[in-house]
Simulated assay, not measured.
Amino acid sequence: MNQTHTGSCLCGTAKFELIGEFKKFFLCHCSRCRKSSGSAHCANLFAPGAELIWLSGADKLSFYKHQETNFSRTFCSVCGSNVPTEIKARGIVVVPAGCLDTSLELSPQAHVFSGSKGNWDDGFADLPVFDGMPS
């Protein structure tokens, strides 16, 4: 069943609409995802056969492909936020979950490439939780 999702980058320059269905939702801990996100993992949604429509900011998008790998990222050249990447050769759109402006019913299905996660990426369940920045 086709769904419509919208999203944007941090500064709002790049806005998109995705028509399709997310089939997979993975938290990727590979070193490339850690470096591109600056965090423990990337939260990526996979939408095979989806249609990606840029509503604004398409002229401000930059694309990076890591040599000799399948790793690639599309990002806003104004604010640097990761936005969807359409991989036409594989017929799939990869969407960073954090750039969605619409609700998502799908929960992460797996941690992937956990063998290369950062040595500091453990024990998060035991950390205190705050609704905002602690004082």
Rank of each mutant, 00 (worst) to 15 (best):
L55E: 10
G123P: 04
A97Y: 10
N70D: 12
N82R: 12
G115T: 09
F71Q: 07
G12P: 10
G91E: 04
R73L: 03
F16Y: 14
A50P: 01
R90G: 01
H111C: 08
L127I: 04
V83G: 01
H66M: 12
G98H: 03
R32E: 15
K15Y: 02
I92A: 00
C9N: 07
K23Y: 03
M1K: 15
S37E: 11
C42S: 11
R34F: 05
R73S: 10
A58N: 05
I87N: 07
P134N: 13
N119Y: 10
C33G: 08
K88V: 14
G7I: 10
N2E: 11
I92M: 03
M133L: 14
H5M: 14
N70W: 10
S77H: 06
G38P: 14
C79V: 06
E51K: 13
H66S: 06
E51N: 08
S81M: 10
T85E: 08
L61P: 00
A110H: 12
T85R: 14
H29M: 02
A58D: 09
F130M: 08
R90D: 15
A14I: 14
M133N: 07
P134D: 10
S135M: 06
L100S: 02
R34D: 05
A97V: 05
T74I: 02
G38D: 11
P48E: 09
D59Q: 13
Y64R: 12
D131A: 14
D126F: 14
E86C: 04
L55F: 03
G20D: 10
V112C: 02
V95C: 00
T13K: 15
A50E: 00
A110S: 11
N82C: 07
A58T: 07
S114H: 09
